[in-house]
Design a protein around this nucleic acid. Sequence first.
DNA 1: TTCGTTGCAAATATTTTGCAAGTTC
DNA 2: GAACTTGCAAAATATTTGCAACGAA
Lengths: 157, 157
Amino acid sequence: MSEADNLVKLLCENGYKSTIQRTMIYEILVENKDKHLSTEEIYELVKNKNPKMGIATTYRTLQLFEEIGMVYKHNFDDGLSRYEILSPNSNEIHQHHHLLCKKCGKIIEVKEDLMNSLEEIIEKQYNFEILNHVVKFTGICGQCRNKENENGNRKET
Amino acid sequence: MSEADNLVKLLCENGYKSTIQRTMIYEILVENKDKHLSTEEIYELVKNKNPKMGIATTYRTLQLFEEIGMVYKHNFDDGLSRYEILSPNSNEIHQHHHLLCKKCGKIIEVKEDLMNSLEEIIEKQYNFEILNHVVKFTGICGQCRNKENENGNRKET
DNA sequence: TTCGTTGCAAATATTTTGCAAGTTC
DNA sequence: GAACTTGCAAAATATTTGCAACGAA
């Protein structure tokens, strides 16, 4: 249970309460660190342990976890939101390079941090024909940063 | 109308017919080159010119356009698919750098191709606090490339 | 004429929300 | 005990599909 201390702390810091449901979802995410589980999949896994679990709670919890920066919400264009827990200790930017095959939908994860001549290397190393690529940065824009400073760090309602 | 020749050619090459609806959607996309219109928005714009237009056709057409590489399907996590026409003449990889604000949902487009020390520059230049970033490459994976060679270049059914 | 395409309506699928009951601090 | 959280069911939203009528080659 000591692992979950991190969760309790994060929730508390953001003005949220610790509940059995949130803890169970957290545990499932930790057990599946390296996967990209969908909301439905997470819900099913939690329901195995606690049959009373509701799907709405799962949606609400994962949304909350994203808000407090505990998970990353992937979008692989398969019509589902998929979540991956972020390492709590590192402040480094979590970097993921994914190769999404348009034909079979397979997701190939590239581990290395190849920002330079990335494309060339990927083309060769993975035999992957790059048709298109997108770089997305998620964060807080200037305007919101300013507002944050005005309002302190309170939770929105 | 000469612009649309490109559409007719692309459709024909892929075994599809040219229709009024496809042409109209193409024209709307060309008129809004630099925007990221949602399916609904495209549908509304086309319906202004042709009130008989159906939403299902819009969905089907945009799906088709993506398949033949005429458009890029953006995902900005706002629950909608957004489309942008791709320049037909250039074979270069269409590169987009987007700053997505998690709080207000604003999409800031970064025009420059800054792959090196990108983060540092963005942090300063846009006053954007980067929490996370993802690099996605869309294309064809090795397995599918091999299959393509076996099957020739036929349309899937 | 043949077969792809359209428009409508109904069906799916995912996610969100209202609300009463239950839980946490 | 006050305020937050849950579970259920209903609602909302986006997208897909069946099918008869239509249109393009």
